[in-house]
Amino acid sequence: MLERALEEITAAADLRALQQVRVAWLGRKGRVTERLKGLGALAPDERRAAGAEINALKQAIGDALEARERALEAAAVQAQLERERLDVTLPGLRTAAGAHHLLSQVMHKLIDVFRSLGYEVVVGPELEDDHHNFEALNFPPEHPARDTQDTFWTTDGRLLRTHTSPMQVRYMRTHRPPFKVVVPGKVFRNEAVDTTHEAQFHQLEALVVAEHVTMADMRGAIEAMAVALFGPGTRTRLHPTFFPFVEPGAEFAVWWTHPKTGREEWLELGGCGMVHPNVFRAVGYEGVSGFAFGFGLERMAMVTYGVSDIRDLYRGDVRVLRQFRGVA
């Protein structure tokens, strides 16, 4: 009997067939159940022996059904998984990755540095007037120093700022020392455009004014920035130069390893100096000293990341913009 039951169980191809086998053997009217019902007709001795035999049979069939059920379930899961097989090598569904513009990245990297050094970040207008851009910064009218900053004038007598320094005047007129500020922004020069010169570019400049700050403080600030950008031990160099709004004035360079050539060399970054007394006079400050330094972001971006044509930064070609993903 068991043999036949096991044959039927093995032959059940799915869970439903197996259920029918279960009913046929162990159901209320199943063969084993029927035999159990027949026990009552036997003598007590026979009944015990036959009972034990039938129970063993029932147990064996039950176990076989159980095992078969587990196997069929596992096979069903396997089949389901098989049906759900994917080709993982096909491309995914996605929104393409965005990117900050390279100049934004450089700007924000610098802003991080200056914030960590305790500077406030301020911005100012791009359309300026002669007073803020030149006169209050000690560029007298008709002074040859103005020729170094070819200016876009507007037909209504205003100008596009040639540097971020007008914000020095605006900030100092609305704040009292001590303070440390940094000003990022777009500036404009009416110069011939080529691979390294644009009519529009970006500067970042710092201004620190207090009762007594010194040129050594200025150098310390420049050095702190250089170390944050280029790593510990970065050296700086100051050479005298002239900007109307500082005295003494200097240009600063950092000693770095050029990422392309691998050569160590001085990288001339920008200008700096102690705020000129005429500038303090123009904003009504007395009895303080201060320093300012500034530089162009394009140059820093170009030498650091190997941009060969400055105009690529402004064309809006997505083949260029995509390269800025994850640059920082």
């Binding site: 934004s104 406030e120 911005v123 001590p178 620190v208 010194t214 310390g220 100051l238 200097a250």
Partner: peptide
């Protein structure tokens, strides 16, 4: 300073009573 040499200027950090206001101007 020019004749003495800018290279002799040291490097210091001023301590200032200035707490920059927070903000996101950019």
């Amino acid at each position: 300073a020019r004749l003495h040499g800018y290279e002799h200027i040291g490097s210091t950090v001023p301590s200032m009573a200035f707490v920059p206001p927070a903000g996101d101007p950019t």
